[in-house]
Design a protein around this nucleic acid. Structure first.
Length: 289
DNA sequence: ATGGTGGCACCGCCA
């Protein structure tokens, strides 16, 4: 106060809202791993959690457990046995009923979107679980691979349409996209070129989807492309940590107007070593909204 | 070169 000229205005106090903390995690059964969700919350303190592979019909979703962790707002889309996505939030949100496609016309519970009531205004949040695609990377010999490619092609057309309508604004797209697009998103680029998740047809398709929506790769915003970055380690390794044959299958993308707000990230690798771990680990991105 | 593990459903499917 001292030294201010008489009549000068006090500087406006800019209240810096806490950045939005978004987590994505392929939980591989929400009922089996509900206790691990508490460990995730303790480690990462998210505002919103996007889950994939909940493997849980809506009527059996563990609402009580999620609510007890502070996630009082929930959107779920599940089915018996397979797939399933859920958005758990401490912030209120509006649902977008009817705004989103039924991907490949299968009704298979692989996408859910909400309008989050974030500190700086609404944020459009998409939670995706792209098909894994089976073992044989050939659409003629493997209908699961064909489904994967068709799904990504539909998502690319959807992104392009949104871009033509003005583009994604204040939006994030997260989830298990089941594709590791960059050379250092896998433990051996050469050895995985013919392995589903890292074949050129898949990585090119995902890159095209990203470009069509002008999405920004939030994890690679923080981690240079020449550094290894994984979010998944197979259950079929004798010692996943020692062999470290990981892949980056889980992603956080943000629209151009949010890219400048990116503040931090964390890949919770410790979670792969938890008792009864999922093969995917939670990924956090913090973004000012 | 092969098979390795895990969840859920139901005795195979999917990842």
């Amino acid at each position: 106060m001292a030294g201010r000229k008489k009549g000068a205005e006090a500087p406006a106090v800019i209240q810096a809202a806490r950045p939005l903390r978004i987590v994505t995690w392929n939980i591989n059964s929400v009922r089996l791993r509900l206790p691990l969700l508490a460990d995730l919350v303790a480690a990462l303190d998210p505002d919103v959690i996007c889950l994939q592979e909940t493997k849980c019909p809506d009527e059996h979703f563990p609402h009580e457990g999620a609510g007890a962790l502070g996630f009082t707002h929930r959107a779920i889309r599940g089915m018996k046995g397979y797939n399933g996505v859920a958005i758990l939030s401490k912030l209120p949100f509006a649902t977008r009923d009817g705004a989103d496609p039924d991907w490949c016309g299968k009704g298979d519970c692989r996408h859910l979107a909400v309008e989050l009531d974030a500190p700086g205004g609404p944020v459009e949040l998409h939670d995706f679980y792209i098909p894994a695609g089976g073992d044989i990377p050939d659409r003629e010999k493997n209908v699961k691979f064909a489904h994967k490619l068709d799904f990504v092609a539909e998502a690319t057309a959807w992104s392009a349409k949104r871009k033509a309508e003005g583009g994604f604004r204040r939006a994030a797209l997260v989830g298990d996209l089941n594709i590791a697009p960059l050379e250092h998103d896998v433990w051996s680029h050469k050895q995985l070129l013919d392995v589903v998740s890292h074949t050129p047809i898949e990585t090119q398709a995902l890159t095209a989807m990203m470009a069509a929506g002008e999405w920004h790769d939030a994890l690679r915003h923080f981690v240079p492309v020449d550094q290894k970055l994984y979010t998944w380690w197979s259950y079929r390794a004798a010692d996943w940590r020692a062999s470290d044959r990981g892949r980056r299958l889980d992603h956080v993308w943000v629209s151009p107007d949010l890219a400048g707000g990116l503040r931090s990230h964390r890949v919770l690798k410790d979670a792969r070593g938890w008792e009864k771990a999922s093969d995917h680990v939670p990924v956090l991105v913090e973004v000012a909204t």
